[in-house]
C-alpha cells in the first residue's frame, strides 16, 4: 500500500519553549475514548489551548494569528514523553503540523510519528535554542539530504532511522515490508518455543 511521499518541507515555525512536553499535554486522556483516528486536532494541547469554559486562551502560541498555517512545531527537550498513545501524532497532524523539532524526542512518540508521516527532527541543543528564540522563522527540512536549513542559509543535518526515511521518501508503508517477510516468519515459528 502506498502513502504520500514526503521529500521536503518548507514552513514557518511555531515555538513552544517547554521541556518534557508529554503526550497527556499533546492530547489529554479524556479524548481517547474514540475508535477512529480522525478529528483529534481540535483537542491538541486542549488544557493549554482552551479555558475551562472552552474558549481559546489568547496567549497560547497555537492560538496566535501568526501560528496559523505553520506546519512545523519547535519544542523544548524530550518532546513526546509519557504515554504511547498514537493519538498524539494524529492530533498534531490534524492540526496541520508535518514536523516536530526538538533537541530530544521520546522513543515511542518518534516511532509513532514516523509511521504517520509526521517528521520527528532532533537537532543539537544550540540549534533548538535558536529556533525557540526565533518563532516564525522560515526553515526548510530536506528529508533526502537529512538537512534542516535556517533562514540565514546555515544547514544542519539531523539523524533519522534509515528505513523510516526510505519509506517516507518513497511512500512505502512498513506493514507491506513486514508482510513480505512471511516465509521467514513462518520458518522462525517452526522452531521457536
Amino acid at each position: 500500500m502506498k502513502t504520500k511521499p514526503i521529500t521536503t518541507l518548507k514552513s514557518t515555525t511555531v515555538a513552544l519553549p517547554v521541556t518534557n512536553v508529554d503526550t497527556d499535554q499533546i492530547i489529554p486522556a479524556r479524548f481517547l475514548t474514540t475508535t477512529t483516528r480522525e478529528g483529534l486536532g481540535r483537542h491538541a494541547f486542549a488544557d493549554w489551548r482552551y479555558g475551562p469554559d472552552g474558549t481559546p486562551k489568547a496567549d497560547f502560541v497555537l492560538n496566535r494569528p501568526e501560528a496559523q498555517g505553520c506546519r512545523i512545531l519547535v519544542a523544548g527537550r524530550n518532546f513526546g514523553c509519557g504515554s504511547s498513545r498514537e493519538h498524539a501524532p494524529w492530533a498534531l497532524l490534524d492540526c496541520g503540523f508535518q514536523a516536530v523539532i526538538s533537541s530530544e524526542i521520546a522513543d515511542i512518540f518518534r516511532s509513532n510519528a514516523l509511521k504517520n508521516g509526521l517528521l520527528p527532527i532532533a537537532v543539537e541543543e544550540s540549534v533548538n535554542d535558536w529556533l525557540l528564540a526565533h518563532p516564525g522563522a522560515e526553515i526548510t527540512i530536506d528529508l533526502e539530504q537529512t538537512t534542516l536549513t535556517l533562514p540565514d542559509g546555515r544547514s544542519v543535518t539531523f539523524p533519522i532511522e534509515s528505513f523510516a526515511r526510505y519509506c517516507l521518501l518513497n511512500g512505502v508503508d512498513q506493514l507491506g515490508f513486514l508482510l513480505g517477510r512471511d516465509a521467514q516468519i513462518t520458518a522462525f515459528e517452526s522452531t521457536h518455543p
Binding site: R37, S84, R85, E86, D107, I108, S111, N112, K115, N116, E161, F163, Q174, L175, F177, L178, L179, R181, D182, I185, E189
Partner: peptide, 21 residues
C-alpha cells in the same frame, strides 16, 4: 509499549520492525 500502527503490525505478522536499543 507500542503505538497503534505497530499494534496493527503485530496483528498481521506477529512481528515488529525494531532497531536494537
Amino acid at each position: 509499549g507500542i503505538g497503534t500502527t505497530e499494534v496493527g503490525h503485530v496483528f498481521a505478522t506477529q512481528c515488529l520492525l525494531q532497531r536494537r536499543p
